[in-house]
Design a binder for these strands. Structure first.
Lengths: 133, 133
DNA sequence: CATTACGTTTACGTTAACGTAAACTTTGGA
DNA sequence: TCCAAAGTTTACGTTAACGTAAACGTAATG
């Protein structure tokens, strides 16, 4: 469970370059341990990286991804902190829900358009068969 | 139904700048008519603009958005064209589905984390009430 | 008739998110 | 022992997606 990863290992797994991973570190998104000079990535680091990349695929900037990551990593100290954290989580959730609406609309548009294409295609094929008689 | 729009009207409605709209035109995403020098946007142009912005919110580049828009705008000529169009639509659909999976995972992660926060908060509040006796 | 609001083109500037190259160290094999 | 693979830092280059500014046209308005 506590296995570690080299930078090129993670790069291969997530199909990115080591440069990208180092860049994320420079931006404060990951903070691997060092063994001498070399970066040693923990399972948690790997999860963070996955989070960043998932965020990117959804159109978030690295800065936005960092906000969420920092939320996940924040110490859950007193009640007040927990309450403001829950508020912020709700904000982020709202952003995701907005994207979900955009996604549903996009999919619905695409599906109805594809359906019209299929109907048109069926009509053309029917006409073809008629002409073949 | 066939009303038209000025560039600043659309900019206001979609909360972007005229510059952005002109840029999209330069990239081949919109092609408004002209009345002298001035750009006149039709309802279809408006729909296209909305499509682009929705795509952007979902993390697509302008080039990717253009591919979809061009698909929607392509003439549905013969059967062969319709078939390749349906294939391409399926490709794009797959991209959207991938984003949907990412979204579901993100929302699930966030919700379960928020739930843990709420439990921790409840525990703290219970302890507070106990201490108050 | 001058100002204000809106439009235009042209062109250079900016930022995020890396790519790329150079120069160097460390390390496990043949 | 020497080489190749993988790591490091530093630094400059690149691209998408606009921002910003200058210089100009036009139309309505006080």
């Amino acid at each position: 469970m506590d296995r570690t990863y080299s930078i090129s290992e993670l790069a291969r797994e997530f199909d990115i370059t080591p440069r990208t991973i180092r860049y994320y570190e420079a931006e404060g998104l990951i903070a691997p341990l060092r063994e001498g000079q070399k970066r040693i990535y923990s399972a948690r680091d790997r999860v963070r990286l996955a989070l960043v990349l998932r965020g990117k695929r959804l159109g978030f900037s690295l800065a936005e991804a960092k906000e969420v990551i920092d939320l996940y990593a924040a110490p859950q100290g007193e009640a007040g902190q927990l309450r403001t954290m829950l508020e912020k989580l709700d904000e982020k959730r709202a952003l995701l829900e907005e994207k979900r609406r955009d996604l549903e609309i996009s999919l619905a548009n695409m599906d109805s358009y594809a359906e019209r294409c299929r109907e048109r295609l069926a009509a053309l094929e029917a006409a073809e068969r008629t002409a073949a008689e």
